[in-house]
Design a binder for these strands. Structure first.
Lengths: 154, 154
DNA sequence: CGACTTGGTTCGTCAGGCGAACTCACTCTA
DNA sequence: TAGAGTGAGTTCGCCTGACGAACCAAGTCG
């Protein structure tokens, strides 16, 4: 906030959180991934207040993460669908879910994600296509656009 | 979806968000990854109000994500460090950062994460150790603990 | 001593989240 | 054709919680 050039606008995490960073939005996106698309279904599933849900959906549509589509003409009914930009959030949601699975669930994961082709549990990893290997967060460094080079997550 | 007992407490994303899901906490964790550990440094960097930062740090310590450690005795100074549980958030933060890089930055990523061993940009992918291959979000299904099997993120 | 730094707490204000009630367009039942 | 029901909101008034400002305490420096 003080340093002008450094992080306020130049951090992608912060930019992402300007769209996703309130108590409801990520849960709305989770439901969108789960196929819940209609206003009242979202409201019931989340237990969110109507005005708040209306506001969040409007913001998400404006941000380009959801798309409002008419799926029925006769009673005019719209649904909210993931755009490609919204669908690209899946690694984030999966990472969040796996963190909760590992650190917050007493009796094993409530839901296990599996590789559809074989039915075995999946993992999420960092990949270097140059070295052609996967690695953990200990081997990450960062190369800033216009900052000095520092270590990334330790 | 329908099942009442199913998702409210049983969704790991929701559990994670009970710890991380307000406007500041993820930014605090980002700064923790960046090596910002002291109260006033965090306050200055984030532009957060003092009482709010004190409250968030207390909650994060209670949740086991940060650890408060005395690093100087003479003027008694504490710092907040990532616990293993906190460090395990790196895939989540990286995913969020990469999403912002891809969809919200006009002029290329502000910061690029690289594979420390070779200096090339890294990727993040889903891995199946059974099939020994990486794949995208299109090949994910989910096997719930006590729900019917449904598709995961599409 | 007095100024300064770090790491808070207390306080009063004000924006924003909440449930309840209302609206509107449409459909279904009788 | 009247009345109930549903989906998708908007309006309203209350109350929590985020905010900046001020205050506090422990220690250090000059």
């Amino acid at each position: 906030m003080v340093d002008p050039a450094s992080d306020s606008p130049a951090c992608s995490i912060q930019r992402s959180l300007e769209i996703l960073g309130d108590r409801w939005t990520i849960l709305i996106m989770r439901d969108a991934f789960r196929g819940i698309r209609r206003f009242d279904d979202l409201r019931r599933d989340l237990g969110i207040a109507r005005p708040v849900l209306a506001d969040r959906l409007k913001n998400l549509v404006e941000a380009g993460v959801l798309e409002r589509r008419r799926y029925c003409e006769h009673p005019p009914r719209d649904e909210y669908r993931l755009t490609p930009m919204g669908a690209a959030l899946s690694p984030t949601l999966v990472a969040l879910m796996r963190w909760g699975d590992e650190w917050l669930s007493d009796d094993g994961p409530p839901t296990t994600l599996i590789h559809e082709a074989c039915g075995e549990p999946l993992d999420q990893a960092f990949v270097c296509w140059h070295c052609n290997e996967t690695f953990g967060s200990g081997d990450i460094a960062s190369r800033p656009g216009h900052l000095t080079t520092t270590r990334g997550p330790e």
